[in-house]
Every structure is written in structure tokens, then in C-alpha cells.
Amino acid sequence: MKIYLAVLKDDVVLNTDILNYFVDMEFKILDYYPKFKMLKLECKKALNQTSLKYVKSIEEEKTFNI
């Protein structure tokens, strides 16, 4: 499983249709950060295997160190 962080497009309002879209695309929604219009997603697929609507940018979760 891979964890992604996705920033929604400025004109997208997170509603049931949008949430269902991600589920249909085999993404599990783990969290939502409203201040940043950002979703935390889980998916089996790699990013280069799919393209997503409603998303301005997406990247895989990274590790940060001291």
C-alpha cells in the first residue's frame, strides 16, 4: 500500500460525489486537511498507473528526519 497526499483544485468542493470518485478509483480516503484542501489517500497502485480528476497536485508520502 502507498500513501499519497493530494491537493484539490481550487474550484473543487469536497462532497459525496468527489469522495465516491476517489473510492471508484480505488483510493481509500484516510484524512482531509481543510485548511490546505488536501486529502491523505491510500492506494495499491503507483501514481504512474493512474490519472486523477479534481486534483491539482499529488505526491507520495515521504519520510522526514531530524
Binding site: K40, T63, F64
Partner: peptide
């Protein structure tokens, strides 16, 4: 160590 989502 930590992750992007924890920081965000």
C-alpha cells in the same frame, strides 16, 4: 523520523 502527513 516522521511522515509528510503527520507534519501536515
Amino acid at each position: 523520523s516522521g511522515s509528510t502527513s503527520s507534519i501536515i
